[in-house]
């Protein structure tokens, strides 16, 4: 199935949820609204033809330029992108889903943006979402075990945010 077909099919099935697509990219991607993510994912997994039964990877990309001079030149507004790389074992095809999020919920700094968890669709998402929460600071609503996975549980901040600052001290260990 070609990318255009899939986008049309998704748009027909979820008219309000598909917000954009780039089929010319190296890995063509489709963007969906956070509210519709779980339904779209369940459809992609359970549809008889598509059968995207494996979730390869979840990544969060922080689009934010901390340097004010450079920030004036960047072509995007600050935001987060959560990228889902899907794979179909029977069809041997991949697909990229994206969800665009604000950097902070309600623009309140420190309040993590929210996206529904897909751990109920693919169990891979359980650990991957924990990692994204841990390192990039995104809250996955409905996640069965929402806590840090790589950093210690009492770590402060989310290191893969572009404005992250290394703590000066952690349990008596000096940073920087």
């Amino acid at each position: 199935m070609s990318g255009t077909n899939l986008v049309d099919q998704l748009k027909a099935k979820f008219p309000d949820q598909v917000t954009g697509a780039d089929l010319e990219a190296i890995d063509p991607w489709i963007a969906v609204r956070p509210e519709g993510l779980v339904d779209v994912c369940r459809f992609l997994k359970e549809d008889d033809q598509l059968r995207f039964d494996m979730l390869s990877c979840i990544t969060c990309v922080d689009y934010f330029e901390p340097d004010e001079k450079k920030a004036a030149k960047v072509p995007w507004d600050p935001h987060l992108e959560v990228v889902y790389h899907l794979w179909s074992v029977p069809n041997k095809v991949s697909l990229v889903l994206k969800v665009m999020l604000p950097r902070w919920k309600d623009d309140t700094e420190g309040e993590l943006p929210e996206v529904p968890s897909v751990a109920g669709v693919w169990r891979t998402a359980d650990w991957h979402e924990r990692e994204v929460y841990d390192l990039s600071g995104v809250r996955f609503t409905g996640h069965p075990d929402h806590k840090r996975i790589l950093c210690p549980e009492d770590w402060v901040g989310h290191p893969l945010r572009k404005d992250y600052e290394l703590p000066l001290e952690y349990h008596g260990i000096r940073g920087r």
């Binding site: 990219a25 190296i26 890995d27 390869s56 990877c57 990544t59 990309v61 990228v83 790389h85 794979w87 991949s94 990229v96």
Partner: peptide, 20 residues
Amino acid sequence: KGEAYLETEAPRGQMGFYLV
């Protein structure tokens, strides 16, 4: 400019690298 994701068959499984 752009982004690319690629998985390879490493001895322990599918190792993927993604760069933006």
